[in-house]
Computed example of a mutant assay.
Amino acid sequence: MDSNGANTPYVVAGAAVLILVGLGVGIGLLIIRKSWTRGLGLGLMIGWALWSVLSAGICTGLNPSLYA
C-alpha cells in the first residue's frame, strides 16, 4: 500500500468479503438447522473470529493500521 492510501478501497472491499463469507455464510448455515450445517456454520464463525484474534486482524481486514 502506498503512503496516500490509494489501495484503501480494495482493503475495505476485501474485509467486507471476508466478513460476509466467514460470518454471513456461517449464520446462513445455522439458519438451515440441520446437524451438519450447524457444525459447519459454527466452525466458519469460530474460525473467522479465532483467525482475527491470532493475526491481530491483519488477515481478516479488521486491523485499523490497514486503513491509515
Rank of each mutant, 00 (worst) to 15 (best):
L44P: 07
L29P: 13
L42Y: 11
S65T: 15
L54E: 04
S35T: 15
L40D: 04
S52C: 15
L18M: 07
A68V: 11
A15H: 04
I46P: 00
A49F: 13
I46C: 02
S52A: 10
S52N: 15
N63H: 14
I31F: 13
L30N: 14
W51E: 10
A49M: 08
S55Q: 06
I58L: 11
P9D: 09
A13H: 07
N4W: 13
G43F: 07
I58V: 15
G61N: 06
W48F: 14
M1E: 09
L18Y: 02
L18K: 04
P9M: 13
G14T: 12
M1L: 14
A15N: 03
L54W: 08
L66S: 03
D2Y: 03
W51I: 15
L23R: 04
Y10W: 13
L54S: 11
T60I: 06
Y67T: 00
G22V: 09
I19D: 03
G24R: 14
S52D: 14
G57E: 10
L23T: 04
G28L: 11
V11H: 03
N7C: 11
Y10H: 13
S55K: 09
Y67Q: 02
N4V: 11
G41H: 05
S55I: 11
I31W: 10
T8N: 09
V25P: 00
W36A: 09
L44E: 02
D2R: 03
V17H: 01
L50Y: 03
N4F: 14
A15R: 04
I32Q: 07
S65L: 14
G41R: 01
K34F: 05
G24L: 02
I27R: 11
G26R: 03
I32F: 02
W48T: 12
G47M: 01
L66A: 06
N7H: 08
M1V: 15
A6E: 10
V53W: 15
V53M: 07
A15L: 03
A15S: 12
A15T: 14
V17Y: 00
L42A: 07
R38S: 09
W48R: 04
T37F: 00
Y10D: 11
M1H: 10
S65A: 13
A68D: 12
S35W: 14
D2P: 01
G14P: 00
S55L: 11
N63L: 00
V21E: 00
S52Q: 12
L40F: 03
S65P: 10
G43K: 12
S3P: 15
G26M: 03
W48D: 01
L54A: 12
S52T: 15
A68W: 05
P64Q: 02
K34L: 08
W51L: 15
I31K: 12
I32R: 10
L62W: 10
A68P: 07
V12N: 07
T60S: 06
Y67C: 04
G14Y: 02
V11I: 15
Y67P: 01
W48L: 03
G61Y: 10
